[in-house]
Amino acid sequence: MAGTTVSEVMAELAELEDPRACEVNERHGDDHGVNLSKLRAVAKRLKTQQDLARELWRTGDSAARLLALLICRPKAFDRAELDTMLREARTPKVHDWLVNYVVKKSPHAEALRVAWFADPDPVVASAGWALTTERVTAEPEVLDLTGLLDVIEADMKGAPARLQWAMNHCLAQIGIDHAAHRARALAIGERLEVLKDYPTSPGCTSPYAPIWITEMVRRRQDA
């Protein structure tokens, strides 16, 4: 809805705050209490509004930033702007949506992947690893898969949680997508035991790489 002001949107988001949702989100490191289905409904009504998206992002409010990422034009951000936004996105959900909904659709995605991958900030580096994991499936020819496994083997065990999770995902994706590297990926996962004891709900696949790889390969073979 064109003409909507930031104040009007913030007031609506405040009305949607749910203390129970806030409590659940806090357990995952997030700091908002708006149900995501309701947030998506607001975004659907507002449609794409790049200027409003930028204003909502500048509020610093997590719910407003999530909404901004739903109504923005991903290709309208320049590289420096996306880099700044990532460094400002400290909560997991905002970080995840920024990478997956915006950066991945940007013409600057590859340049940012390379820059973030080696960043000394582990949260920024985790975004570089997330973009690299997408390349493992979509464009493996731009990667040195053996070199990636070398880095994972050397650094994943001691990496901070967010970065470790991203590296583990990359390890699993290499094992799932590339049969030539599967035995080594499984061996690295078994030796490092990262996320081996991670609590997994019934019906869900464990993030422990050996289980994850084995299960996804089995599903593909059975399909």
Rank of each mutant, 00 (worst) to 15 (best):
residue 117 F to T: 01
residue 106 S to R: 12
residue 24 V to F: 14
residue 18 D to I: 09
residue 101 Y to K: 14
residue 82 L to W: 07
residue 118 A to T: 12
residue 175 G to T: 01
residue 95 H to W: 15
residue 91 T to M: 12
residue 193 E to R: 14
residue 121 D to P: 05
residue 17 E to L: 01
residue 152 I to S: 03
residue 125 A to E: 06
residue 166 A to T: 00
residue 25 N to C: 00
residue 222 D to Q: 15
residue 103 V to W: 03
residue 24 V to M: 15
residue 218 R to M: 00
residue 175 G to H: 07
residue 24 V to T: 12
residue 218 R to I: 08
residue 42 V to Y: 06
residue 12 E to H: 12
residue 64 A to G: 09
residue 199 P to G: 07
residue 1 M to S: 10
residue 154 A to I: 00
residue 23 E to Y: 05
residue 37 S to K: 05
residue 16 L to R: 10
residue 20 R to E: 15
residue 170 C to S: 08
residue 205 T to A: 08
residue 190 E to G: 02
residue 200 T to H: 05
residue 221 Q to S: 13
residue 152 I to A: 09
residue 10 M to D: 02
residue 145 L to H: 00
residue 105 K to N: 11
residue 187 A to E: 15
residue 123 V to Y: 11
residue 154 A to R: 15
residue 27 R to K: 14
residue 99 V to C: 07
residue 155 D to H: 07
residue 75 K to R: 12
residue 73 R to T: 15
residue 16 L to F: 06
residue 77 F to M: 01
residue 195 L to Q: 12
residue 144 D to L: 13
residue 219 R to D: 14
residue 5 T to W: 00
residue 159 A to T: 00
residue 171 L to N: 06
residue 205 T to K: 02
residue 55 E to W: 08
residue 28 H to I: 01
residue 131 L to D: 03
residue 153 E to V: 03
residue 42 V to A: 07
residue 19 P to C: 06
residue 19 P to N: 05
residue 86 L to H: 09
residue 203 G to R: 11
residue 69 L to K: 08
residue 8 E to H: 12
residue 130 A to Q: 14
residue 90 R to A: 09
residue 193 E to S: 10
residue 100 N to D: 13
residue 70 L to S: 08
residue 146 T to Y: 04
residue 16 L to G: 04
residue 17 E to N: 14
residue 64 A to M: 08
residue 67 L to M: 06
residue 80 A to T: 02
residue 209 A to P: 06
residue 9 V to C: 12
residue 38 K to G: 09
residue 33 G to Q: 12
residue 3 G to M: 03
residue 11 A to E: 13
